[in-house]
Amino acid sequence: MKTTAKLFSVLFFLILIFSFTPDDDGDRLVGVWAPSNGKARIKVEKIGNKYYGKIVWLREPIDPVTQIPKVDKNNPDASMQNVPLKGYRLLKDFIYSGKNEWTEGTIYDPENGSTYSCLITMKDNNTLDIRGYIGLKALGRTDVWKRLEIKK
């Protein structure tokens, strides 16, 4: 009886442990990443249960025409065209769906004000395939992002 009770307790707590195991896999996306064109650096963070990526650095932060920090001048909503690009969340609403993929999210291109469906695939811990597409995944383009580390 004592042995049975012990075994039962072990089993119960094991179930508890595994059901509360932290979701580390999805959190591997968190960090700073550089798109292939080198024009920006994107910081991915987790808010709630979803992942978001915002611009934290721009190679050319000042608009050469207006001489002020770049803003979202191509936003289709005219009332939002003065939102600064630094701090802008390009990647939104991604959830980790297993197998090194983050789905259900979108990517915004401030160059033309378009929002694309997006699939993020982690090729290795330091490399992402960011595929923006329209409707079908075939109608899109993949960009390779590399993880960055802050120099000490």
Binding site: V30, E45, K46, W57, L148, E149
Partner: peptide
């Protein structure tokens, strides 16, 4: 909670000085 951790450690000037991991 990576959100809270991120806010405590935010320092945008440090993104000037980065290196690729590979």
């Amino acid at each position: 909670d990576s959100t809270k951790k991120v806010e405590e450690e935010e320092d945008y000037s440090i993104y000037e000085n980065v290196t690729s991991t590979d």
